[in-house]
């Protein structure tokens, strides 16, 4: 069983923000937020970044705040 599974197994992504025990994501921390945004300025889904739901929500909140204050773009080109 284990061997069969191993063939198909991908390395499981872990929430990096859980690793660092983040309790608040500052919307002014643009270098961090840029990691969770595509080149076009869209928010990267958690299935790709590996964030847990709680931290994805924090990231979303921070990005939306930064966008409103024109710190991050809504779209690029």
């Amino acid at each position: 069983m284990v061997r069969d599974n191993r063939r198909r197994m991908r390395s499981k992504k872990k929430c990096r923000l859980c690793g660092s025990k983040t309790t608040y994501i500052d919307y002014k921390n643009l270098s961090l937020l840029r990691e969770y945004v595509t080149e076009k300025g869209k928010i990267i889904p958690k299935r790709i970044t590996g964030n847990c739901a709680k931290h994805q929500r924090m990231v979303k909140e921070a990005i939306q705040r930064a966008r409103f204050m024109a710190l991050l773009p809504y779209t690029k080109e």
Partner: peptide, 10 residues
């Protein structure tokens, strides 16, 4: 433009 919100974490 302005924005005010609570800092619950603090």
């Amino acid at each position: 433009r302005w924005q005010t919100f609570r800092r619950e974490d603090l």
